[in-house]
């Protein structure tokens, strides 16, 4: 077997192992399905009742934003799960086997990608029930979902690095929330950014979360004239800007996390 073939096979073996866990741990299913439903409903009816946006229903404005927020949060699972594997000595077991050193990380991030895709499907269906509509072509819509998942996948590798360095699942979870909350809120996710104070507006404009949300809105056809994006480059070319971010995150954190993994021992 070629080295690449073996690496792919090892990655799949670990992916399968991680997905079995998803089936056996109810909390994970809840995290992946019920909480997105709850968020869609809460935002749709609580914020939606107070934030009228001319020319578009709040449900249509909201869904691309909440897709992005949920899957970015989902990346914390990657870090926390790896830290847990470290704590339980499983990484030692894996590292003593003649398997590809990328496999544990590939298997982790791919399983989390699957979990994110599941969340998106659940949210999408919920969104359709409460008034979200896709007003573009199937191709564009699929491109929108693909772009969201790509950024989420890249974030997963960032969190994988954090998980291997921090080593305590609870700390990974809590520390990353402190970063991810502002990251997903100082953006165009839930409200238009027109009235943000200047500094926040600047952050929101260059925030990759804003870009992926803007890109998704355009690809799903969930836009309105009044929502004309800022004329900063990032939001004028949201797809490209998102691809750039994803590419940079992957290029930095895949090699970095594999390197750290190679010299990580559990205790």
């Amino acid at each position: 077997m070629s080295a690449l073939g073996a690496a792919v096979e090892d990655g799949l073996t670990i992916t399968r192992r991680n997905l079995v866990k998803v089936r056996r741990v109810p909390e994970l299913i809840v995290f992946a399905t019920l909480s997105p439903i709850m968020f869609v409903l809460l935002f749709r009816y609580v914020f939606g009742s107070a934030i009228p946006i001319e020319g578009i229903s709040y449900a249509e404005f909201l869904l691309p934003g909440i897709f992005a927020q949920t899957i970015v949060f989902g990346s914390t699972i990657t870090g926390a799960s790896l830290a847990e594997d470290l704590q339980k000595g499983l990484i030692d077991r894996f590292r003593s086997l003649p398997m590809a050193s990328s496999a544990v990380l590939v298997g982790r991030t791919v399983a989390d990608l699957a979990l994110n895709a599941l969340s998106i499907v659940v949210m999408g269906v919920t969104g359709l029930v409460v008034g979200w509509r896709i007003r573009s072509s199937i191709g564009e819509a699929l491109a929108g979902f693909a772009l969201l998942l790509l950024l989420a996948y890249a974030m997963s590798w960032l969190m994988a690095t954090v998980g291997l360095l921090v080593r305590a699942p609870e700390v990974v979870q809590q520390a990353s929330f402190i970063v991810i909350f502002p990251l997903t809120f100082i953006a165009n996710t839930f409200v238009p950014t027109n009235n943000f104070p200047a500094v926040l507006r600047w952050i929101a404009d260059w925030n990759p979360v804003s870009a992926v949300v803007q890109a998704a809105r355009e690809l799903f056809g969930n836009t309105a004239p009044v929502l004309e994006a800022s004329d900063v480059w990032s939001l004028q070319h949201p797809v490209l800007y998102t691809l750039l971010w994803s590419g940079v995150l992957l290029a930095v954190f895949i090699p970095l996390s594999v390197r750290i993994y190679r010299r990580t021992a559990s205790r």
Partner: peptide, 30 residues
């Protein structure tokens, strides 16, 4: 490829069954 290791603390995947644990390791030994 030539060794087996049983560490000081049992390193089994709690969420997998006994046979899933062993099959996984077998697969990782190709």
């Amino acid at each position: 490829a030539a060794i087996g290791l049983t560490g000081q603390y049992a390193a089994v995947d709690e969420y997998l069954t006994g046979s899933e644990n062993l099959e996984m390791v077998g697969r990782l030994y190709h």
